[in-house]
């Protein structure tokens, strides 16, 4: 089948980009979306043109590398999957698609459909350490974990950090991502000692990196390939507010501190 693609072409982080029109003449319905782009890129390479840059790695929806906008939706029209898991059978002959990079001040475009998401790494780093013993594996059940907390923590930990939440958010907020990271440690006993401090620091870092704020629109939850819920955002707000209102100086009594 024939697919018409309007793709954002941008030479580097400094240059201005623009949409360019391409045609993939014989895309197979069995191809994944990224394989269809591979076909386009081979064609472009044969013609001596610059191939379209897009990020990808595992191509099975678990690494968080891939992701761009297809017709204004991160990862395209299929819910609960990344763009590498989207297949061409969902399209028909002659379809015209618009591909754009994720857009946010905190996600500068590096080239074409590839953006720099290292702001996410800096937010994670700002959360600091958790206090667990290294060395041999702990005894099973030495530390009781409430089943429902474990479930919620694992659901939050499913976040692959692809950035679709930021891309879809009308305010370019990273709240879903940051709240998933805060929740997956904050719900487990191992994460309690630094829970308040972590929430405070990660929220401040998220603000500093230039991400927007959450208006509870729910767009992120709808596009998240891992089904992360905005319930996590409420938990982040709760942890942050608690941390802000219960803060106290470290005790110096008895020569401590």
């Amino acid at each position: 089948m024939k697919i018409i693609l309007n793709i954002w072409r941008q030479r580097n982080a400094k240059s201005a980009g623009k949409m360019a029109r391409y045609e993939v003449a014989d895309a197979s319905e069995h191809m994944s979306f990224l394989e269809m782009l591979d076909v386009l890129n081979e064609e472009l390479t044969r013609k001596g043109e610059d191939p379209v840059t897009f990020e990808h790695d595992c191509r099975e929806g678990i690494c968080g590398c891939c992701g761009f906008m297809i017709d204004g939706v991160p990862h395209g029209p299929q819910r609960g999957t990344t763009v590498c898991q989207l297949h061409m059978r969902h399209y028909k002959n002659g379809d015209e698609l618009w591909l754009e990079p994720f857009r946010a001040k905190a996600f500068p475009v590096l080239k074409d459909l590839m953006v720099d998401r290292s702001a996410f790494d800096r937010v994670i780093a700002s959360g600091g350490f958790i206090s667990v013993n290294t060395g041999s594996a702990p005894d099973g059940n030495a530390l009781p974990v409430v089943k429902k907390c474990s479930d919620m923590a694992m659901d939050a930990a499913a976040c692959i950090g692809c950035g679709a939440c930021v891309a879809s958010c009308p305010n370019a907020s990273a709240s879903l991502f940051v709240s998933a990271k805060i929740s997956h440690l904050g719900l487990l006993p191992q994460g309690q000692a630094e829970r308040d401090r972590r929430a405070m620091r990660m929220v401040m870092k998220m603000t500093e990196e230039g991400f927007g704020y959450c208006t509870n629109a729910g767009e992120c939850e709808a596009v998240c390939p891992k089904g992360i819920k905005i319930e996590n955002i409420a938990r982040m707000h709760r942890d942050y507010l608690k941390s802000a209102f219960t803060y106290r100086e470290e005790s110096q009594a008895g020569g401590a501190g």
Binding site: E100, K105, G218, E219, E221
Partner: peptide, 19 residues
């Protein structure tokens, strides 16, 4: 802040959940 957070708008943006 919202305008600062996304200086370059999308050419095409769909809304699927926002009321």
């Amino acid at each position: 802040l919202k305008n600062d957070a996304r200086p370059q708008p999308y050419v095409k943006k769909a809304t699927i959940a926002t009321t």
